[in-house]
Amino acid sequence: MTSPLEQKKIKITGPSVVTGNRTWDGVVIYRTSARGWSAALSDAAIVRTSDEARSLLAESVADDVGAIGAYIAPVEIKDTGEIKPGNLREHIRAAGVTIDLPVSA
């Protein structure tokens, strides 16, 4: 988790979103442009400047009951407009573990 102090220093270099985990169950969520949260990355508000990022983050962090550990994460926007996670960690958070889950037969 990134502390609010470190977040102030954040400068984004490309399209980014704000993500965190939902407080009551921990599910990965993304901040939407409607000042809410969604479990789908496709719903995420995209920010492109450091100022936008900082203000989206500030609004997200203020919703302490809704989400925990909100931070700015990079994304890639495909030519089709599809939003993809910008690094392996975010890919794993969005798509789940990269291994088969042990399952009870």
């Binding site: 988790m1 985990n21 921990g26 990965v28 960690r89």
Partner: peptide, 11 residues
């Protein structure tokens, strides 16, 4: 103090 972490996907 009661063993609850926040991980990538969940608690």
């Amino acid at each position: 103090q009661n063993g609850v972490y926040l991980q990538l996907h969940a608690y």
